[in-house]
Amino acid sequence: MKKSVAIIGEGETEWFYFDSLRITQRYPFKVAPDFPSHSDITHILYLAKRYLIEQYDYVICLIDMDRIRQVPQEYAAYIAAKSKKEFRKVMFVETYPCTEFWFLLHFVPGLSTKLYRSCDELLPELRKYMPGYEKSKIYFRKTKLYDYLKANGDLAVAMKNAEKLCRLSQENPEDQISYSEIYKVIKLLNELMPMKS
């Protein structure tokens, strides 16, 4: 039985990455909204409620922590939403600082607990592995993100290191490190896919 999955991203990066993943892997999920126009938490929570009402089996919200932490009201609203009953079926997936950190994990061979405080701080490191990378529709249309990462990076290493970094981040929150929970989405999608013969 097919499960319905809505993945709500804050911006274009998430939309293009998960759309290329959906197409390549033939996953039957919706990347929502059809194209993001608002990245504020109010809009993300509005969409989450909408997909819950539409009875999606899984509603996933991707959160770039560098952006949301810059606006105290948004951060407070996000923290409050995570504990509200109406959002208990929503899977909140954080990355600090941004989704590009998940991309970087495909290339870094060893576990690094380096802290990147912003996406701008991280981009020079990512461009060593993805030359010319930029957050633009032109780049994303030209470079199918998932396909590029699959061909040039190592998803298994990214998954393993992301899981370790998330564990370290939770065990020692005072030791700030960059982390990404996107591996949880990949695991879930793999579990939901019927076995290919």
Rank of each mutant, 00 (worst) to 15 (best):
S37P: 02
F29L: 06
L122G: 09
L149C: 06
Q70D: 13
E74Q: 14
E181S: 10
Q176W: 03
I182V: 08
R50I: 06
A32S: 14
Q176S: 12
E94R: 10
C98R: 08
S169K: 09
F92I: 05
P124A: 11
P124W: 12
Y51N: 01
I44V: 11
T95D: 06
F87S: 00
C119R: 08
Y129E: 00
I79D: 04
L188P: 05
L149F: 05
I79H: 07
Q70W: 02
R88V: 07
Y183T: 02
P194Y: 02
W15A: 14
G132A: 01
M159Q: 12
D154C: 07
A32C: 11
T113P: 06
K30G: 02
D154A: 00
K187W: 00
E163S: 14
D64L: 01
P72D: 04
K114W: 04
Y139H: 15
K3H: 07
A81W: 00
T99R: 08
D120F: 07
L105M: 15
K82V: 09
K114D: 13
L189P: 00
I186W: 04
T99G: 09
R69S: 14
L165Q: 15
K2H: 14
L189E: 01
W102A: 00
I8C: 05
P97E: 04
R50K: 15
V31S: 01
I138H: 11
I44L: 14
E171P: 01
Q55S: 05
E134G: 08
P109A: 14
W102Y: 04
P72S: 11
S197A: 09
E125G: 07
I53H: 10
Y183A: 02
L168C: 10
G9N: 11
K196R: 13
Y75G: 07
G9K: 14
V71D: 05
M130E: 00
Y183K: 02
K135C: 06
E171H: 11
R88T: 08
E86Q: 06
D147N: 15
D175M: 11
L52P: 02
L126W: 04
A156H: 12
Y179T: 07
P173S: 01
C119P: 07
A48F: 00
P97V: 09
R69G: 04
K49V: 04
S136V: 08
E12W: 04
M65L: 15
Y133K: 00
M193I: 13
E181F: 00
K30M: 02
H43M: 15
Q170N: 14
K30V: 05
T99L: 03
I53L: 10
Y58S: 07
L45M: 06
E74F: 10
Y96E: 14
D175T: 05
L47D: 02
I138G: 09
K114Y: 12
L189I: 09
D40S: 06
E163P: 04
Q70G: 12
K30F: 03
D57K: 06
M195N: 15
F140M: 08
E54K: 15
K89W: 00
S39Y: 03
Y51K: 01
C119T: 15
K137N: 06
I53W: 01
L188K: 13
L122W: 10
T95V: 09
D120P: 01
P72H: 13
S178R: 02
E100P: 01
Y133M: 02
K89P: 03
